[in-house]
Design a protein around this nucleic acid. Sequence first.
DNA 1: TTGGTTGCAAACTGTTTGCAGCCAT
DNA 2: ATGGCTGCAAACAGTTTGCAACCAA
Lengths: 147, 147
Amino acid sequence: MEERIERIKQQLYAHNYKLTPQREATVRVILENEEDHLSAEDVYLLLKEKSPEIGLATVYRTLELLHELKVIHKINFGDGVARYDLNAEGADRFHHHLVCVQCGTVDEILEDLLGDVEKKVEKTFNFKINDHRLVFHGICYRCKDEE
Amino acid sequence: MEERIERIKQQLYAHNYKLTPQREATVRVILENEEDHLSAEDVYLLLKEKSPEIGLATVYRTLELLHELKVIHKINFGDGVARYDLNAEGADRFHHHLVCVQCGTVDEILEDLLGDVEKKVEKTFNFKINDHRLVFHGICYRCKDEE
DNA sequence: TTGGTTGCAAACTGTTTGCAGCCAT
DNA sequence: ATGGCTGCAAACAGTTTGCAACCAA
């Protein structure tokens, strides 16, 4: 936890940004809810519990900043709300997601399944891939078992 | 063209909806711009050229309707705007996209590259896949060749 | 004459921006 | 005292909704 914050602090400083108390609080909320897919509003509400004076605009600005520095990824599951997701440290590709159309749960696939597919795409389409977004829609194991 | 409209008409009728002049005009705009990824606003502006009296709300309602009937797919490339895309007739999976981070062009991959990956995911995660979204971000062949 | 459909305007939601004040350097 | 950062409120963009009018069955 503390080491991860320290590392993010370095990334900020490397780009002449500071780790202000508001930014640190935001980062902590994201780290503490790593398995969730929080929207800016979600982060804001969680933050308010401990730092009631923080403004929503600051949250948006911080998330945008962290996104620019590639500390977090921005993803949209189709409900019109931007969500933010930490990627594994050192991973050069974003992980995949399983969205259950029944209960709405979003699970993660941390293993990269697209290595071969990307090779084929780069070759066939002469396209240099930087990153990808892969989301599966379907029925999760919980909902399946319930039936 | 006409056969495709006829088929969409059937799908509407099958669900007790009508193919009104506004709906037909909307469908035509989408068919005529099949290779593009139009937003509701884009469709609206194209429609206005030939049917100036149409309302934006009707366009939204029609697109939503076509989306429900799975005639068109809704996709968001990260700019916060919903875009609509026809899928190949008979295809049970949505096609893939290549988004150029330099010029913004969106190209399509019509071939389904995820057959094996899906099998693996269904087995490993006990997840019944209905559909997927796969987008690659990178540099397109046009921008690469320009350098 | 009933119920689906439409156009308009207003409402709503998520996000961005202008600005005055604040704080660390 | 300079420049980055913040909170607030207002602005903004995309989308949805309420409603009266319309029109085909």
